[in-house]
Design a protein around this nucleic acid. Structure first.
Length: 824
RNA sequence: GCUCCAGUGGCGGAAUCGGUAGACGCGUUGGACUUAAAAUCCAAUUGGGUGAAUAGCUCAGUGCCAGUUCAAGUCUGGCCUGGAGCACCA
């Protein structure tokens, strides 16, 4: 065996062998229980970054560990390859987005192989290929037939920079998630998916996911935003009309002093008097011009215009004015709000500014407020509220709504913040939406046998202000599948999140050309047992995928209702305390690390310093330290190779000096197995590799002339170390294993078992406390009874000295651990 | 404003159930080997006090303030700081 560790040489050699022998191929038929380990697939942007390295290493170690534990493991990889960067690159360089994407995939595939990841490449999926997007389109058609995909004219988010619309989830602080450009509102006819039909089940089923972190679950719950309230309808005085409002505070109904409708409210023109028409029109025009950021800023001084009309409060018979103001949102509730300035901070600000009346209806009996300086929004007791006076406001919510229902002017109502998912994109590089428009038949879905609707090649990527796809001469013109007459194709493509909402299902049957996947296979492999990826997808991808799974279950395509059983959201990779980014110039190129230290060092280091869920600070010294450690392990193996036999068996009776090392090995097996099983604490796993290595070196330094028993024990310890390290240092352990004479892969060896009797120290240290402070430590036999431990503690010279002259109030004995003596 | 997460040496972090705080590593310091360097190996490394001392003894210490307990990094209540998400959602 070579004395020195040459990672580059070893790694290339084994990667080639694994590739040639299909070492990581997964077979569908196996008696073993299944385990599906999945990393979020990457966008092929060009090169891997350290975030990818961290993500894929974590999942790879999990996959290898589970395989060694006897599972039939599915561990696939693919490409989320539609999307704007390819199109932007095409515009810049005049290249075809497909060529650009293919080149990136080829390069990144090479990098993934260099990392030694155990993927079954036969199941690779690439979302921009016709054999994949055919099924994305097919699934769209199924959703359409089920009424879950529909087209409507709506106020949508428009990013001028990207020249496309965006889903609500893709607007971050009023800006585009991708380019940071300011998002505007536009009125366009667009395709939506009815995710709101699933709002309640998406919320409730979060309880079925104990394997997800609370942070992700709360983020989803907040996004869905369920609230309980009531619809109240108000009669308009001047017209024969009713205005419904949604409120969570029906208890404040006696305090209404005006009512606000959004500038985009559908009946606003009918509600405006001729005298107010000009002012209202101007206000609405201004609102239209505003960006989302301006419009939604809570700091902004509230503005509004009276419509000139009035409505009646059914509780009091009072007449109050109608206003329009842009603090009312047309998309939420009914687009109209009842205003109670005394008990809502927004209404309060508005009423102050326009000098509108206020009426207190809720009071804290201990500390009554006149609400002259601020709104009182806490709970309290009703006043000025007729028959409800004296009732607590929580009870009044129900009582008042019941009265409303009885009176026929309203109802109980549950409202969600979640909006339908806008999936149209005015871009080229995505899956075309498979519908056509016929003058006679209207919207007509493309016939399934005509899928895929292929992306055209004859397009001009440099076109400005419209989607490149519209420049194709061949694409738009078609015939109607119903009447055969002339028709136009939909030129919008689908949001890339459509493609990524079902890719994990396709891996179960990646090559199926008849269906998106076979039902038996998808039911066999899914749900994903462990999903690993970044927290940035907490809402977007993870919510859409949950929706897709539920919708496809309702379509009868599969039998489970949650796609990801356990979710690990890994932290970011930082350098010098901030996120690695090109603009900050603090990136570390994985290629350089592979070249200088090898993939095993990179894998070891990226797992070593922080638990997976926390942020990880990259340090060059840390990499160096891991490289040195692997060298140290290599030397340990190489310098003892003459003693090592590939045998895990040991005799039961060992001398005390050897017994201790055997115990350390068993403790390491137990500790490492538990640390991986328990939330994948790889940082402590790696510290245990080091402890075991240190222990073997220490033990060895005491053996100048090893006898037969010593050699056996040493061999056992080193073999165990190799196997324990094999999921992380995948190449080093494979090479060492073969150098020691093995003919089969270390990665096919089963995981190690430990003996509970051996996985602990032979004697225990009894900690003796006086009044809770450690005063003495005594080595004792573990078989001793509680009384005997107490006896030993009290008789310790040190303790005798400390307790002399004091009354012993109490003695607490924790078996095998500790004695606490309470004295006065 | 609401929701969630976190706070432990110079640094990353460790500590199943409440039971020896600081594992393991990085860094630093000292030493061995070497003509020298690299590599490797050994030792020290929470702070204060006492001490000739690398011994021993002792006090304090896990963001702050209380509480529960024989015993609190861990449990409870109230704060402070940092991070993340949501936000004119009525």
């Amino acid at each position: 065996m070579k004395e020195s560790y040459f990672p580059q040489e070893i790694e290339k050699k084994w990667q080639k062998i694994w590739d040639e022998t299909d070492a990581f191929k997964t077979y569908n038929n196996s008696d073993k229980p299944k385990y599906y380990a999945l990393s979020m697939f990457p966008y092929p942007s060009g090169k891997l970054h350290m975030g990818h390295v961290r993500n894929y290493t974590i999942t790879d170690v999990i996959a290898r560990f589970k395989k060694a534990q006897g599972y039939n493991v599915l561990h696939p990889m693919g490409w989320d390859s539609f999307g704007l960067p390819a199109e932007n690159a095409a515009m810049k360089h005049g290249a075809d987005p497909e060529t650009w994407t293919d080149e990136n995939i080829a390069y990144m595939t090479k990098q993934l192989k260099m990392l030694g990841l155990s993927y079954d490449w036969d199941r690779e999926v690439t979302t921009c290929k016709p054999d994949y997007y055919k099924w994305t389109q097919w699934l769209f058609l199924q959703l359409y037939k089920k009424g879950l995909a529909y087209k409507k004219e709506a106020a949508v988010n428009w990013c001028e920079n990207c020249a496309t619309v965006l889903a609500n989830e893709q607007v971050i602080d009023g800006k585009c998630w991708r380019c940071d450009g300011v998002v505007e509102k536009k009125y366009l006819s667009q395709w939506f998916l009815k995710i709101t039909d699933y709002a309640d089940v998406l919320l409730n089923d979060l309880d079925k996911l104990p394997g997800w972190g609370d942070n992700v679950k709360t983020m989803q719950a907040n996004w869905i935003g369920k609230s309980h309230g009531a619809i109240l309808k108000f009669k308009v005085v001047e017209k024969d009309m009713e205005i419904p409002v949604y409120t969570t505070r029906p208890d404040t109904a006696y305090g209404i002093t005006y009512l606000v409708v959004a500038p985009e409210y559908k009946d606003i023109e009918a509600l405006t008097t001729p005298e107010q028409k000009a002012a209202v029109e101007e206000y609405r025009a201004n609102a239209r011009k505003m960006t989302e950021i301006e419009r939604l800023s809570t700091d902004r001084v509230k503005t509004g215009v009276p419509l000139g009309t009035h409505a009646i409060n059914p509780f009091t018979g009072e007449k109050f004015p109608l206003w329009t103001a842009d603090y009312a949102l047309v998309e939420y509730g009914t687009g109209a709000v009842m205003a109670v300035p005394t008990h809502d901070t927004r209404d309060f600000d508005f009423a102050k500014k326009y000098n509108l009346p206020m009426k207190v209806v809720i009071q804290n009996p201990e500390k009554p407020s006149d609400c002259k300086d601020e709104a009182y929004t806490e709970s309290g007791v009703l006043v000025n509220s007729g028959e409800f006076n004296g009732m607590s406001n929580e009870d009044a919510k129900k009582a008042i709504t019941e009265k409303v229902v009885k009176g026929g002017f309203g109802e109980f109502k549950t409202q969600y913040r979640l909006r339908d998912w806008l999936i149209s994109r005015q871009r080229y590089w995505g899956a075309p939406i498979p519908v056509v428009y016929c003058d006679k038949c209207g919207i007509v879905p493309v016939d399934e046998k005509d899928l895929p609707v292929m992306l055209p090649k004859d397009v001009d990527f440099k076109v400005v202000g419209k989607s490149p796809i519209t420049t194709s001469k061949s694409f738009a013109e078609t015939t109607c599948p119903y009447c055969g007459g002339p028709a136009r194709r939909e030129t919008d493509t689908m949001d890339t999140f459509m493609c990524s909402s079902w890719y994990y299902l396709r891996y179960s049957d990646a090559k199926n050309s008849e269906k998106p996947f076979d039902k038996d296979l998808v039911n066999k492999w899914l749900p994903v047992d462990q999903y690993v990826g970044g927290i940035e997808h907490a809402i977007l991808h993870l919510l859409y995928s949950r929706f897709f799974t539920k919708a496809l279950r309702d379509l009868g395509l599969l039998d489970f209702d949650e796609p990801f059983k356990n979710l690990l959201t890994q932290g970011m990779v930082l350098k010098d305390g901030s996120k690695m980014s090109k603009s900050k110039g603090n990136t570390v190129d994985p290629d350089e690390i592979f070249e200088n230290y090898g993939a095993d060092t990179a894998r070891l280091f990226i797992l070593s310093d922080s638990p997976p869920a926390r942020d990880f600070d990259w340090s060059d010294a840390g990499v160096e330290g891991c490289y040195k450690f692997l060298n140290r392990v290599w030397r340990l193996i190489a310098s003892n190779s003459q003693y090592i036999t590939l045998n895990y068996q040991l005799s039961n009776t060992l001398r005390k000096d050897n017994d201790d090392l055997v115990r350390i090995v068993h403790m390491a097996i137990k500790g490492i197995t538990n640390d991986i099983s328990n939330d994948f604490q790889f940082n402590t796993v790696i510290s245990k590799y080091r402890e075991l290595t240190n222990a073997i070196y220490d033990w060895q330094s005491k053996k100048s002339q090893p006898d037969e028993e010593d050699k056996n024990v040493l061999s056992f310890a080193i073999i165990a170390l190799i196997k324990l390290m094999s999921p992380v240092a995948v190449h080093l352990t494979e090479e060492a294993w073969h150098e020691l004479g093995a003919k089969t892969s270390i990665h096919d060896e089963p995981w190690l078992e430990w003996d509970e009797n051996l996985a602990k120290a032979s004697s225990i240290t009894l900690v003796v406390q006086v009044n809770g402070k450690v005063k003495d430590k005594i080595e004792v036999d573990e078989a001793l009874s509680q009384d005997e431990l107490k006896e030993i503690a009290l008789n310790s010279p040190k303790i005798k000295e400390l307790t002399a002259g004091h009354e012993i109030v109490k003695v607490i004995v924790v078996p095998k651990k500790l004695v606490n003596i309470v004295i006065k």
